[in-house]
Design a protein around this nucleic acid. Sequence first.
DNA 1: GTACAGCATGGGACT
DNA 2: CATGCTGTAC
Length: 915
Amino acid sequence: MQQDPDVIARTAEELVGDLNPQQGEAVQYQGPALLIGAGAGSGKTRVLTRRIAWILSQFGAWPSQILAITFTNKAAAEMRERLATLIGPVAQRMWVSTFHSACVRILRRDGQSIGLKSGFSIYDSADSERLIKIIATEFNLDVKRYTPRSILGKISDLKNNLTGWQEYLAVHAPDFTPGQRGYQFGHAGDLEAIHAVLYAEYEHRLGLANAVDFDDLIGRTVELLRKDPQVADYYHHRFRYILVDEYQDTNHAQYVLVRELAGVDARESADATPGGNGRFAGKTGPAWITVVGDSDQSIYAFRGADIRNIQDFEQDFPNAKTIMLEQNYRSTQTILDAANAVITNNEGRKPKKLWTAMGKGEPIVGYAADNAQQEAVWVAGEIARLHAEEGIAYSDMAIMYRANAQSRSLEEALINGGEPYQLVGGTKFYERREVKDALAYLQALVNPDDDVNLRRILNVPKRGLGDRAEAILLAYAREHGASFFYALMHVDEIQDMPTRTANQLRAFRDLMASLSQFTRAHDAKPSEVVAEVLDKSGLRADLEKSVDPQDASRLENLSQLQSTAAEFEQKTPDATLAGFLETTALVADSDQLPDEGEDSGKVTLMTLHTAKGLEYPVVFLTGMEQGTFPHSRAMEDISELSEERRLAYVGITRAKRRLYVTRAAVRSQWGQASDMMPSQFLDEIPDELIDWKRREAGVERMRGAWGRDEFDDDFGGWDDDFSSGATFGGSGSSYGSSYGSSYGSGSRYGSSYGSGSSSYGSGSRYGGSSRSGSGSYGGSSYGSGSNGRSYGSGSGSRSYGSSGSRYGSGSGSSYGSGRLGSGSSYGGTRGGKVTTRRVAPKSGGSSAQPVSSLDKDNQLNIADFSIGDKVTHDKFGLGTVVDLQDKGRNSVITVDFGSAGTKRLMLRVAPIEKL
DNA sequence: GTACAGCATGGGACT
DNA sequence: CATGCTGTAC
């Protein structure tokens, strides 16, 4: 047998000897289609890598015949690494990538046949929005009424379902031709016609600009495979084994892509090979497909993921086999019990029985804070305690939340506690203004057709070229049916231009021409091109001469961009500028996490979405409130609420040994404080699993007391709670002052750190600057961390001492006298007779109404409705009732809103009105 | 053409 | 609360 010399041969025993029976079966299975139902923590990555090794060593496949798709680049890198230890260096050459990267690779190679030129641009959603806005403005659409965002959302939906613009246009606006000028919409408000026209025109412009958006990467690859039999044939023969991870999060387009790549619908039929020793298994006919997923962890429906892909797998792929992995190797029984109890509340799911051999473990710890700041301080204090008293490494702890905006107060508390942390996500490095500007230059140089990017930089940095100049160039380009770049290069031929404008335009043309030349000469050295662009464009000089402290950090980001380019060209053998730009377009938040095994020495903060696929010994789930989590916009719709619940399931199952759930009674969002009810997911966790350190916030006890006229009754600790709550806004306490000083420094503080992918390591820098030094830390201690590097010293050695004194030492600190101090005051559960459910807002009081709660009630009664009734909904408009489910308080009403779709709404909270 | 103030508006998770 | 847009003064 000819076998790749780089492949380390592995015996069957080595590959499956240490697996459980189901895992072993999944690794060895021979057949065209395999679904591995992998519950959380059931060792799916292990099974996937072993299976690949099995296919190579036992089926005798070549590494080049395997395509492994993961969800993020980070997951791909990790899988590749694990493969390398299993089968050797050949893993570096295998196709292990995300859907998007794989598609880019295919389109770069073969995209010509569907009209893509090499060097095509990949638009991120901001670019796409810009383009939509340009188009909408040209059509005189009211951008307020038809937001680019919503239009783009519709286009994205259509693309995810592989509905082409031709098809959509033919139905909704057949009289429009893309590229046509001055089109008038029939009657205003015909949403579908507007969508159809904008979709068509948007695609037209993308084509002219030689650009694709995120969704196109998938959709156009499908198009390519369908339109070009030669290309399809090439990939059918090339990939004999396709493995897809996180299959529950694939959308329809991705599903079709897998089918097309595998050639499932191609005519060629398979030889009946299975059996024997497996040699030649899967070598003819459609490629063999292995998908791995867990429908309970489907959390991307909002992005078009279709849970039916995994549910219908057995019908979709003939002779499909399903293997369930149900033994969990990650978490304690307590944690699994909680997760199971929560997810059981979702309707229409297949029951699953995850189990573990690990034993009960510690109870889940619960804490109800008065407000978000106090919640954060408590979490930070608990982390410090775990670190000091139990020797748990910071890097073994993670704090998770529903939305990025919640990271603020948590960061604040960690900084004050001197605890090292890294924040994942938020505004991405490559989305920052100055970085996007620099990238726009590079993109325009690589792809001269890219009007969107060229127009972006026409007047960046300011060079006196405004709307007028842009319009003049645009007119010339139109007239000649050419690109903006072409017009710029021919600026000398344009008549009747103000001298000043002409001079500026010529200067800009010379700049771009010379940069273009430089780019061609140094294409293999992206870092040099970046340096040249930053230098000659004036981007760097412009920031250097600025006195705005924000610009210092911008400058640093630009130099970071240059380093990233240098790094890229070092680790990429055949580096090109286009290749570099690709990597910047496709990075994910999770890609910046440190590699497995690499101890960052820092607590990790991230959203629940980002946390998918990760695990930590200690996990804090924060913001467990109605309206925060589940998110307010998801609460009224049953399917969205189910997705939130799956997200809760994902969050809970990230924890290996200890889980904390915390909430705040008051949370300020958009500058408005609101009373928050406990999350319904907390109520779904059996009470005996949770050890509440504080079950009810002080303010809630007060509210409850007033409401019941029991003001003076015995609520042990009421006084403490009240005073600590009251001190927050005040000035006296140590907490109040340190918080006030750094937070209060306002814009500088917020701007330098609210953004993004940063990691704050050095305790000393922060510790020292908390009061007087706020001016000095605008940008200097901030690092982008986009490539997983960590900045700052990160030792955190002194941090505990300081946090200890801040929280622990009683005097002066009205805060934490006892509660947050040392473990001694922790023990007893307080206010045990109080349940979360009972906390009801006092009606008619002066305090703010709860934005959302279990008790919210719009007084609608299921009995008043019958099928066929007309209703109006605040968001979806007019609809017809098509189904009713009487479940008492939780009654559900199903309404057909026409073009807005059919929705299942929880009657009690739905903003509807009966007509 | 630019700079800045004042106002309106959005507001979620991510490739 | 942050950002983006509009209007005004330079």
